[in-house]
Nucleic acid binder design. Sequence first.
DNA 1: TTGTATACCAGACATTTGTATGGTATCATG
DNA 2: CATGATACCATACAAATGTCTGGTATACAA
Lengths: 207, 207
Amino acid sequence: MSPRTKPGVTRERVYRFVRERLEQGLPPTVREVQEALGFRAVQTAREHLERLVLDGRLSKRAGKARGYFLPEQHAGLTPPILIPVLGRIQAGDPHSAIEAPEGHIPVQGKASDDLFGLRVQGESMSGAGILPGDVVIVRSQPTAESGDIVVALVDGEATVKTFRMRRRRVELHPENPDFDPISPKSDAFSILGKVVEVRRFLEGKGG
Amino acid sequence: MSPRTKPGVTRERVYRFVRERLEQGLPPTVREVQEALGFRAVQTAREHLERLVLDGRLSKRAGKARGYFLPEQHAGLTPPILIPVLGRIQAGDPHSAIEAPEGHIPVQGKASDDLFGLRVQGESMSGAGILPGDVVIVRSQPTAESGDIVVALVDGEATVKTFRMRRRRVELHPENPDFDPISPKSDAFSILGKVVEVRRFLEGKGG
DNA sequence: TTGTATACCAGACATTTGTATGGTATCATG
DNA sequence: CATGATACCATACAAATGTCTGGTATACAA
């Protein structure tokens, strides 16, 4: 028999282990918990896990392999996920460009959100603190509200601009006095999504 | 028999499905792929999956339940981890402030790095595209090179500035003409770390 | 034609994995 | 002492899941 620990101590370790594994994207099996904690019986691991579920610190899909997960995921929060970073979007939707992403970066989003990253080219949004080389994280959506920063497809090329409606006409505003607003024709224009986050990497990372 | 598709079409759908599931944190089973794609035979799903593995688009842990994963996660990249975001750092090192973080955000860093997030207050770095409310991600380190953007502790308060050495004297430069450089006395000054990333949340997230 | 590749199916088997039953030992408490 | 709670173990069973063998059908090229 393994040395008996004080009540709660081992369970805390079990919780940490499960949490760590979930953050890595692969939920552990009961037996993996058993091994990691050094139990000689599967059941010991199971008891700790079930207890954690009872306490509300874990949730599970009964009977399913690797069925334990964090209850927050119930409430819309997913674990950190990796989304693709695109260097360039040509005609069509971003998904057709996802074939050859520059890389992936972690975000924490709702499961329902369809997110992707896009590397910014040009100075046109530097007045809003979005500089060339920055990565904008975009939630795919076909519409936007006036004032939103969006990724729009104009004449087959993706661009980041502030979206505004003026007298029922679409205007795309750069945030830089050296650039002029665009009033795209509706047949050569579509919204790919809304920018929900901006990231700048000051070291080699993120490429 | 399900309608036969052109070569590659169904496989693409399989790949998308697996990818989506992985991003949600729970890798699919072969049978879940089968159901999602509407195959009547498990083997059909398996053939697509194995082919994706052969093509290098997926990897797998043979024999293990829910064993398919994206190859990128293999290649030296550490899994995304959650780091604490601090609202304010008072005297002392950031770790003493970690007790009550604002929240956590995911980053992908080397295991050896000691990272934390800090919410930026004030306009002093807006010329470098770092705005009030932005979160800077900081790698803890006691020194910096001239030109690095650092988080420094001056008179017991944390501040984000550009670090410069001028004739063996430390200068902390704001990136905003409305502010003046600081030349802190060495006994009331220390470097907490270097800013390696800047994030701005344009929606409720990240808070 | 033959051969090869692709897409799909049916059924079975073997391993992994979740679950259950029953047991030992220690500690605290009435 | 008896009782209950906790921590842990051994073993077995059943469901979930990965894997295999062999088959049909279509398209295309040698």
